[in-house]
């Protein structure tokens, strides 16, 4: 059997499969299907320093091969994360990624420092790309802001930083390169694309927030391209996210250059998808005569 182990910033993941932030809770219900301890890493829904209630409903709507969400990041804040979420996540014995966001660089710094101080988290993922907040995407869209938020957080915590970027820029690969220059240890590509559905009966946008973020199979080829083009520009590892619904989608991401993959909304449709992807990658490696998943990271670039 081929090895599924990968490494990000010196931290070993036993396999390259993890949830994408905001699409998987460490609940009793989820444990009915498989233990999160079987995953390569686990990640929380993005937290802010302070409690937030999220956006007014409707918050989601189905679209062709996808869905829009405008959840608006309800969160219990840092205290709730440390007191109730982290102990639950720790019990699975796999590396923990803490997804954080802020409305200012100071917020990002404080929430990151408090998370790092717990000593229980392996990585901090900076969510620089939520399309459902007024300032959300701007971090990932403005080179200067992107550089400074990453640089400042990097300087103030001693654990690896992952920058989660938005595809809603003219060239996501450039933003990945800015992140690398600023000191990011890895990038997570991609967050959702901003979109809208109009309710033709009511004659107005359907979502309470008017716009929402598009995820699901509809965005998969866009995400593959974001990973592929970034892989050419950066040396740090990429976590490939976007529309993964099967092991073959995940293999595509890895061939495009992802060291690991994150699975979001498809957990809603197939609660077993992450486990099936782990098994599917393993079979693919065996069937194709590879000894390790590391051998296929970026392999699609040989011809391109």
């Amino acid at each position: 059997m081929a090895s599924l182990e990968v490494e990000i910033a010196g931290i070993r993941l036993k396999n390259p499969v993890m949830p994408a932030s905001g699409a998987y809770e460490y609940s009793e219900e989820r444990k009915s299907f498989f233990s999160p301890g079987e995953l390569g890493a686990i990640i929380n829904k993005t937290i802010f320093l302070e409690k937030r209630i999220g956006n007014p409903p409707p918050r989601i709507v189905e679209t062709p091969c996808g869905m829009l969400n405008a959840i608006g990041i309800p969160t219990g804040g840092i205290e709730d994360f440390i007191e109730t979420q982290l102990p639950k996540m720790e019990s699975f014995g796999v590396p923990i990624i803490a997804s954080v966001a802020g409305n200012s660089i100071e917020d990002f710094l404080e929430v990151s420092e408090r998370v790092a101080e717990t000593g229980k988290v392996s990585f901090i993922e900076l969510n620089l790309s939520c399309p459902n907040l007024s300032e959300g995407i701007e971090w990932a869209r403005d080179r200067k802001q992107l550089f400074s938020v990453i640089e400042r957080v990097k300087a103030s915590v001693d654990i690896p930083i992952i920058a989660k970027l938005s595809p809603m820029v003219s060239d996501v690969a450039e933003m990945a390169a800015v992140s690398e220059d600023a000191g990011a240890d890895a990038v997570a590509l991609i967050n959702t694309y901003k979109g809208m559905v109009i309710d033709i009966e009511e004659k107005k946008p359907l979502l309470g927030n008017l716009t929402g973020g598009l995820s699901g199979p509809a965005i998969h080829p866009l995400a593959v391209y974001a990973v592929f083009s970034s892989y050419r520009k950066i040396k740090i590892p990429i976590i490939g996210i976007g529309g993964i619904a099967s092991w073959s989608n995940a293999v595509e991401m890895i061939l495009a250059g992802a060291t690991a993959v994150g699975i979001g909304m498809y957990n809603f449709v197939n609660p077993m998808v992450m486990k099936e992807v782990i098994e599917g990658i393993s079979n693919y490696l065996d069937d194709n005569g590879f000894n390790s998943v590391k051998e296929i990271v970026g392999l699609a670039h040989r011809l391109g």
Binding site: Y24, E25, P57, N267, F268
Partner: peptide, 8 residues
């Protein structure tokens, strides 16, 4: 089952 926060 409480993951997506869509059904508020």
């Amino acid at each position: 089952m409480g993951d997506c926060h869509g059904c508020a």
